[in-house]
């Protein structure tokens, strides 16, 4: 799985899910249609800058996706066409939501993130877990070995369903 394309830079830490998709738009019962309001409450948001049109990679700093558990944040990012988010750290629930939906959460060192802020494009090799810069420089990143499969092949809910009989047996012995 290769992701390559333009970078949308969000030069801030602590972008919470209220800023990614404000609560006033959480009135749907589907997973689609949230992209039009993506990042609209971020002060000075770059989202509508034509320079970043059709960007595939969202680049930000620390603690991205903190706050509300709303999976709508991930749905909105994907709905807008992003395939990956690069950050120096993610909030727990947001990162889990990324895996469960197939949005690639790429965690890099702060120095590496800083270097990427000077780039306009990059390539992400998900299988080999590396980010390639246009200069040829390479940054490695970690992915959860189990949840990586959900990114590559989907099927999180099928996986959970496959555990049902095991859970039933466990419940009998546990009580």
């Amino acid at each position: 799985m290769l992701i390559s394309g333009k970078i949308l830079p969000l030069d801030r830490s602590n972008i919470d899910t209220d800023q990614i998709i404000p609560a006033r738009y959480l009135t749907g019962i589907t997973k689609t249609g949230y992209g039009v309001h993506l990042l609209e409450d971020v002060p000075g948001t770059p989202i509508n800058n034509p320079k970043y049109k059709d960007a595939a990679v969202l680049l930000t700093k620390e603690n991205f996706g903190c706050g509300s558990s709303r999976e709508h944040a991930v749905w909105a990012i994907m709905d807008k066409g992003f395939k990956a988010v690069i950050a120096s750290s993610f909030a727990r629930i947001f990162e889990e939501n990324c895996y469960n939906n197939g949005l690639v959460p790429v965690k890099l060192k702060s120095e590496e993130v800083e270097k990427l802020f000077k780039q306009s494009n990059c390539e992400i090799d998900v299988i080999n877990q590396v980010v390639k810069l246009e200069s040829g420089e390479i940054f490695k990143f970690e992915l959860d070995p189990l949840k990586k499969e959900f990114i590559l092949k989907g099927g999180f809910l099928k996986y959970m369903e496959s555990k049902v009989s095991l859970v039933k047996t466990w419940e009998k012995t546990a009580s």
Binding site: S69, R70, E71, V74, I93, E96, N97, N100, N101, D144, L146, K147, F156, L157, M160, E161, K163, V164, V167, E171
Partner: peptide, 19 residues
């Protein structure tokens, strides 16, 4: 707290996958 999909997984199998 968890996301929608993790919650759906919990409704199916009464479990979460957690670090």
């Amino acid at each position: 707290g968890i996301g929608t999909t993790a919650q759906a997984g919990a409704m199916l199998a009464q479990c979460l996958i957690l670090n």
